[in-house]
Nucleic acid binder design. Structure first.
Lengths: 128, 128, 128, 128
DNA sequence: GTGGTCTAGACCACC
DNA sequence: GTGGTCTAGACCACG
């Protein structure tokens, strides 16, 4: 389903949250679809079930999923603001890196070209 | 000079790195200008000198400042030849983030506008 | 495990780095093997945990070990693709030292013999 | 005459010692030749005269130069053992780097080829 | 004065 | 248990 980086400085449960958020936002996981059970996912990823739990609880708290006792966890209907929040973060990160690149001598034209290139490649293959 | 958020989950030394990078990139701190000494800055920010040290060392490793023992820390001038390798890494990172941004719905026009904005703030100089 | 010279002008943490590198290179410590924890090693060597930390972080930066938070530090397996850049730097360094050695009178035969010797000690395995 | 790296982690006076040793060993500075005066050299290198003094004293202590009061500092007649000592250090350094290179996958043949290449280039242009 | 290293001891998040 | 961060205070070498 996806990969985790055990060596990363980000805690595993946060990586999980990010990955799941992405799958939900991009609607790979559709609204009201059931998520894999804690145990199953833990086994697949060979990590501790507690870690999955923690991620699921946090996702529930943030409104991305909802839990039905005795049934499992399900994707919550999407809320537009989610996009917004995620995009805001990406923008901030972009600004930082762009600043550094320009400082080191890259010019606007090169950057625009880079964007065009990336845009074209993504447009070609919609499926991630 | 600037403020730190001691409560933040980002370590203090990383906040320092970010802030100082920004001052260097926007050329508020000019090449070869001396940075405040470890002790002085520590006193100003009321944090431990070791924490400043950690930030300064990392900035040196990243090529933003250089250290002269017994003298102090100084803003590194940008030398094209040295930074080509770094630019390559930045480009890779940019591509990754750009891809994600486009995938989540940002369009080329918005990105170009963002670049223009950042470019103006750095190229223009003081405006921040 | 090994000894440190607290009086040496080389900082303790650098001695540590050298020793650990050697153990890794000679494969006394095998890939993915766990290193002693920061605290345990500190106690064994009767030095401060922070000093061990410093050494471990540098070894991680150099790609010799990797860290899993909450788990420990482990010997990094060698992955060709990642290390090509590092090999290039090593080569440059080698050329510099070789030039100096030849300039000061060492001849090609002596150098080849040296290589053979080193190659045998590492390739052969345990012999040190 | 030569350059110093103020940013280096090696103290300036040690860099001076190394450079002068090299000039003496390679007989660019001939036995009994007069060295530049402390003041002149300090001015040329734009560093503190005390630093030059320190280097000259250490070189005298090590037997590389001798001082005649009121006259100046002079190159001491060479002693063979100097070469030996220097070569020993180089060899140690070589062993370390070779070990690392081999660990990262370079094989003996590549290294021998590298030596041949360096050897050939040096042989062609004797003057450094 | 400057940075570099080190200790002792503390608190945190993660697993 | 693990590593990561931080403080307070010390000593050193360097210029």
């Amino acid at each position: 389903m996806f990969e985790l980086d055990l060596r990363s400085r980000l805690p595993i449960y946060e990586q999980l949250i990010e990955k799941l958020k992405e799958l939900i936002i991009t609607e790979v996981l559709k609204p009201d679809e059931q998520l894999p059970s804690v145990r199953v996912l833990a086994q697949q990823l060979t990590i501790n079930p507690n870690t999955i739990q923690k991620a699921y609880r946090e996702l529930e708290r943030q409104g991305f999923i909802y839990t039905v006792k005795g049934k499992g966890n399900f994707v919550a209907p999407i809320i537009g603001s989610i996009h917004q929040e995620k995009l805001k973060k990406l923008k901030d990160e972009l600004i930082k890196i762009l600043s550094e690149a320009i400082y080191l001598g890259m010019n606007k034209e090169e950057l625009v070209e880079l964007i065009t290139h990336v845009d074209h490649n993504i447009g070609g293959g919609k499926e991630k």
